[in-house]
């Protein structure tokens, strides 16, 4: 579904991502783990066009080359991202945030159905639909950011650190919900520092370190690998 080849990203003199290649197949959950600054966020940002990769990089989605496409076009192809730190629009209401998630869609009926679907997954959002998003708690904002992403009816959902800054109980809840959403046919690429949760959920995983993939394998393989255990699971 998504094929990334030889992705290189530079910010000024910093070579943040060094020629990584990876794939996400339809129906999978793929996790990318690694420490701060390993290049995970940059990778996601490049896929959705917020960062321009170096020449020679290739990002292909469902047979289309998206390497130099604009973000708003990429989103229309069915890729959506829940950005790090949630980034809900604080002075818009919950409902308005969700509507913006479906901004480019032209099927009012489908939008309405998806809105109901999101409210079903997150009843708390329904209760608070007319509240300003900035007044929600961190967990609720994460739910809103996720719901907003679902409103675009994505084929590929990318999540940047969904567990960041959330209480452990909420992290569990969010991951349960991700599992449910996946069951309904959404392919996922998520990056996480919380390696344990991510690897439990993922079918396949990549370990990033200073801009390179140093290890890959199924979620289970990675979870039992000595290297991952030592570096990311603290065992």
């Amino acid at each position: 579904m998504l094929k990334v080849k030889d992705l290189n990203i530079r910010y000024g003199g910093i070579h943040a991502v060094r020629g990584i290649s990876f794939e996400v197949s339809e129906g999978e959950i793929v996790a990318m783990i690694g420490a701060n600054g390993a290049g995970k966020s940059s990778t996601l940002r490049a896929i959705c066009g917020l960062v321009k990769p170096e020449k020679g990089s290739s990002i292909n989605f469902l047979g289309k080359d998206l390497t130099s496409a604009e973000t708003n076009q990429i989103v229309r192809q069915g890729i959506t991202m829940v950005p790090e730190g949630r980034r809900v629009f604080p002075d818009l209401t919950v409902r308005e945030n969700l509507i913006l998630g479906s901004y480019f869609r032209k099927d009012p009926q489908g939008i309405k159905e998806d809105m109901d679907w999101v409210y079903e997954i997150f009843p708390r959002l329904k209760e608070r639909r007319e509240q300003l998003a900035g007044t929600l708690s961190g967990g609720e904002q994460q739910m809103l950011a996720l719901g907003r992403a679902l409103m675009s009816r994505p084929k590929l959902l990318m999540m940047d650190e969904p567990s960041l800054g959330l209480a452990p109980i909420l992290v569990k809840e969010i991951f349960e919900i991700l599992k449910d959403i996946h069951k309904q046919g959404v392919t996922m690429l998520l990056i996480e520092q919380n390696a344990r949760m991510a690897l439990q959920l993922a079918h396949y995983g990549y370990v990033l370190e200073t801009g390179s993939i140093i290890l890959e394998g199924t979620g289970e393989e990675l979870a039992i690998s000595e290297m991952v255990k030592k570096a990311y699971l603290g065992e």
Binding site: T71, P83, P90, L92, Y103, F104, S152
Partner: peptide
């Protein structure tokens, strides 16, 4: 919806783009 897109763009360019808004 256009007004919403304006308010969203005013707040955060990147996230607005992620909504498919042509800022």
């Amino acid at each position: 919806k256009t007004g919403m897109a304006m308010r969203a763009t005013a707040k955060d360019f990147d996230t607005a783009k992620l909504m498919g808004i042509d800022i």
